[in-house]
């Protein structure tokens, strides 16, 4: 199909991929970087789902988090600042056989690539988008990000940021065709894994905001939530994700939230003093752009020739025949 030879699929069932099969270069992130936890969760997901490494693509933007694909042993596309989403969409549009993940930082997603983020939600293509949100520009050495809390001092805001931060959850939930929105934190590794897994299994565009510490520039930014688990709100529901009992012991603050309730999801997303974690919204009935625009049939040479001839006939001039008339 799609001009792709088939025989490479023969061995799939016989090959077992271990974690090693997904581990690429040794990460060059700083010790203590939250990205490591995300990487581990994703590698675990790949192994548990036995994703063929050659059929799996990680597309990223620019920033610390966007080094992610280099540390996987799948296909990767470390592209341009802000442009991971349209590149990933291009990868997917004619390759439904590929599993495509997108890694973006908060600068990528919420600043330079915002237009793509909004439209990616609307396209609702079958992609998993992981937004590594450390609320700061790290690789460029500490500048304010759209998600930096108000008053945060950075190199570009020495007196503190003057604006309220952008809320990626309410923003995503406000866009037409939104189909999956979740939030999780890197310091909850098992839950992080569960959320990414749910995102992977979602039909449509899955957007996961991952709160992530930068050990250099925002090491303490999430302290209120780490030191006091009561500031974290677990979203539980029979239609939502299973939450293990051990987790419930630590995070005692949980609310029942039906992920199909968009209105309630927006209310939860608007919390300012606490952080909700889990699936805020999920709707698998939204149509997907890649499926709406999918190729309906293969095109042979003779079909192409016929189609061209049909078009040429609209513009044709034939030689005049003997009786003086055109054909």
């Amino acid at each position: 199909m799609f001009g792709i030879t088939q025989h490479i699929t023969i061995d799939y069932d016989e090959t077992y991929h271990s974690l090693d099969d997904y581990q690429g270069n040794v990460p060059r992130w700083c010790p203590g970087c939250g990205d490591n936890a995300i990487l581990t969760s994703v590698q675990r997901l790949c192994r548990d789902e036995q994703l063929p490494p050659e059929k799996t693509v990680f597309v990223s933007g620019i920033g610390c988090s966007s080094r992610f694909p280099h540390y996987m042993k799948t296909y990767g596309f470390h592209g341009l600042h802000g442009r991971a989403l349209p590149i990933a969409q291009g990868v997917k549009i004619r390759r439904p056989d590929l599993h495509v993940f997108v890694n973006m930082g908060d600068g990528d997603c919420c600043s330079i690539g915002t237009a793509h983020w909004i439209h990616a939600i609307r396209y609702n293509m079958n992609l998993v988008a992981l937004m590594h949100d450390n609320e700061v520009y790290g690789l460029t050495k500490m500048q304010a990000s759209p998600t930096s809390p108000r008053g945060m001092k950075t190199n570009t805001t020495p007196k503190g940021t003057v604006l309220q931060p952008l809320n990626p959850l309410t923003t995503t939930l406000g866009v037409s065709n939104v189909s999956f929105v979740a939030q999780v934190a890197e310091w909850m590794p098992d839950f992080l894994y569960e959320v990414i897994k749910a995102a992977y299994h979602h039909h449509g565009f899955a957007f996961v905001r991952i709160l992530q510490r930068c050990p250099h520039y925002t090491p303490n930014i999430f302290d209120p939530f780490i030191t006091n688990p009561d500031n974290v709100v677990l979203l539980t529901h029979e239609k939502g994700m299973p939450v293990r009992d051990e987790l419930k012991k630590v995070y005692k603050n949980s609310i029942e939230h039906d992920p199909s309730d968009l209105h309630r999801a927006r209310e939860i997303a608007s919390m300012s003093d606490k952080i909700p974690v889990g699936i805020l919204y999920q709707n698998e009935d939204i149509e997907c752009y890649d499926e709406l625009r999918r190729k309906t049939r293969a095109c042979t040479h003779s079909m192409r020739e016929q189609a061209l001839e049909h078009e040429f006939s609209k513009f044709i001039i034939e030689p005049v025949t003997e009786n003086g008339k055109s054909h």
Partner: peptide
């Protein structure tokens, strides 16, 4: 008619990035 798709992207940058993604794939 020949299995192709014209994608009207959200902006010029997205259009070329989308094309680059498809070409890469």
């Amino acid at each position: 008619n020949v299995g192709g798709v014209v994608h009207q992207a959200e902006d010029e940058i997205a259009a070329v990035a989308f094309a680059v993604g498809a070409s890469y794939a």
